Amino acid sequence: MTSYEATILVVDDEQEITELIALYLQKAGYEVYAADNGAHALRMAETLQPDLILLDVSLGRMDGIEVCQALRQGVCADVPILFLSCKSEDGDIVRALSEGGDDYITKPFSPSQLVARIQAHIRRRRTRERGSEEPASSLSFPGLDIDFHSMEVRLNGEPISLSVKEFELLSVMARSPKRVFPLEELYRRVWQTDSMGDTRTLMVHVSNLRKKLESDPSRPRWIQTVRGFGYRFCPAENCEEQTS
């Protein structure tokens, strides 16, 4: 019996692309299943409970965004979902990641880059499930409480709902208050791979995190931009700002 690294569901209505992706992933040791429309994808996800889903944005009647929304409400609530799309506009990326996507890869892409991204997401999820990535602890700041064991965050005593990637971003920065994280380093810490020069996925997740944490996202208090360098977590209201 063949032992696979993980099970991956590829959702794309272009058969040639699906077959090409499946070929590379199978060579990398993954078990691959395919769906060519949204309804089929939801049925297969329910049955397979895959370790990761590759999801094309453009699927016809039920597009990838709608499929992602439905997956997040079912058994794949915490399964990594990587969007594939020929659309590279920032608005498209923002929408995809805001609706539950963990990553966004623009077509055409390098097969080796795709495999590297998949490996990083699966490795990250398994490390988190084993509980070996971070000790069971918590951090408290004035108005903000983070529980790393339960992955719960409270803002002024009220729970806020964060995606896995949003929580991981907050965790990395909050464990090193006031430290400036360059974009590439922060990407590697959270996605466990290089950004390949495209950090837009990171910036969209930071934007989404700010919308949930900040009373005024345009003037962030918790997650600040240090122009020309990256981001930092500011634990106090009087934290000296280095942003514009």
Rank of each mutant, 00 (worst) to 15 (best):
V94L: 11
M173R: 13
M173T: 12
R61Y: 06
I93H: 03
D56I: 03
N37P: 04
H121T: 02
D145S: 11
I118N: 06
H121G: 03
S140R: 12
G131V: 02
Q113S: 04
E5V: 10
A41R: 03
A136W: 12
D92E: 10
S163M: 10
D102Y: 03
T2W: 09
L209C: 06
S98C: 02
S218G: 09
V94N: 05
I81N: 00
R188K: 13
R210K: 15
G38S: 02
Q15I: 13
P235D: 06
E31L: 09
R232D: 08
N37F: 08
T193M: 02
I53G: 00
V204R: 12
H40T: 08
T127M: 13
S207W: 14
I223V: 15
F109C: 04
R95A: 13
Q69L: 02
F181S: 11
V164M: 09
G228P: 04
L139A: 14
D90S: 09
V57Y: 04
R130E: 15
A6W: 08
Y24S: 05
E237Q: 14
G131Y: 04
D63C: 01
H40I: 05
C239M: 14
F109R: 02
A236T: 14
V226D: 11
L162D: 09
E152K: 15
Q49D: 05
D13K: 07
T193I: 05
A39D: 11
S215N: 15
Y187K: 08
T106H: 01
T193R: 00
T106V: 15
N208R: 14
I81D: 00
L186D: 12
M1K: 06
K107C: 02
P135S: 09
S244H: 10
S163N: 02
Q69F: 00
M151H: 13
S207Q: 15
I65S: 00
E14P: 03
T243D: 15
S215P: 04
P111F: 05
